[in-house]
Simulated assay, not measured.
Amino acid sequence: MFSNEPWFPDHHLADEEGLLMVGGDLTPDWLLLAYRSGIFPWYNEGQPILWWTPDPRMVVAPQDVHVSKSMRRLLRDNPFTVTYNQNFLEVILACKRIKRDGQQGTWITNDVVEAYLRLHQLGYAISVEVWYEDKLVGGLYGIDLQDKGVFCGESMFATVSNASKVGFITLSRKLTKNNYKLIDCQMYTDHLASLGAAEIPRETFLEYLK
């Protein structure tokens, strides 16, 4: 008989791309077990839920986030205001709507929005908002595994140049002060690499979660 109790196969059963399992649910129990186990959902509209555990894993220690000279000047001049958890819904909807190079559509379906909004209401999903002249121009959201000292980044957006970088760098400084060990960026992108993220073996990443 099928049980809807959350569970996942062993990581070594994932395929070469990191796909571990098909199915399951997006309830808080499923999602929290996934993130605590180093697994995340990623799928398109019309697909079943796909759960991933890529090897290697893209990560960065908060204190190692790269801040370029131009970004240092921007942060010093401080044209932006950065807040936390002031408008989670608008941040995730902006991440859903933003056009991304090489991508058609978005994995942030309506079901995903509702699921992460529930996690936010429970205190597990957090948002970072970047404002310019009282307008939301950038931000990011993710899962805060506070007891493990790991922040799992999910998505970011910017409608003004460098706004998402400002949010990411500001968050990284806050996490550094709170002794977080790692920001999980999931998979490689040039944008994340420019911020100092790098790939590590999956087994090394899982050690951080133990």
Rank of each mutant, 00 (worst) to 15 (best):
L93E: 15
R36P: 00
L20N: 09
V166N: 10
F80R: 07
K99V: 14
A14W: 07
V137H: 12
V91P: 00
V22F: 01
R72Y: 03
Q63C: 09
A61F: 00
L19N: 03
K148V: 05
R73G: 12
R100K: 14
F8R: 13
D77I: 04
I200W: 06
V130F: 04
A125Q: 07
W42I: 10
D184I: 12
P79Y: 01
A125D: 05
G24N: 08
N78A: 15
M1S: 14
K181H: 10
L75M: 15
P54G: 07
S68I: 10
L136S: 05
Y141Q: 00
Q63R: 14
E17Q: 13
V160L: 13
L74N: 07
D64C: 06
H191V: 03
V160A: 01
A94P: 05
I143Q: 11
D190C: 02
I49F: 07
T53I: 11
R57N: 10
W51R: 04
A163L: 05
R202L: 09
S164D: 13
R173Q: 15
F151H: 00
N44V: 02
T81F: 04
N85S: 05
D55F: 04
S68R: 13
S70N: 14
D55L: 07
C185Q: 14
E17L: 08
K181E: 08
R36T: 12
Q63H: 13
T53C: 15
L26F: 05
H11V: 04
F2L: 14
N87V: 03
K99H: 14
S155Q: 08
D29A: 14
P9A: 13
K99C: 09
L140R: 00
E129G: 11
G139D: 01
L89C: 06
D29F: 00
I98C: 02
R57D: 12
N178S: 07
R100G: 10
G142A: 00
I98E: 13
C95H: 08
R76V: 00
D144T: 05
G149R: 03
I39E: 11
D134P: 00
D147A: 09
K135R: 13
E90A: 15
V65Q: 04
L182F: 02
G149N: 03
L93N: 14
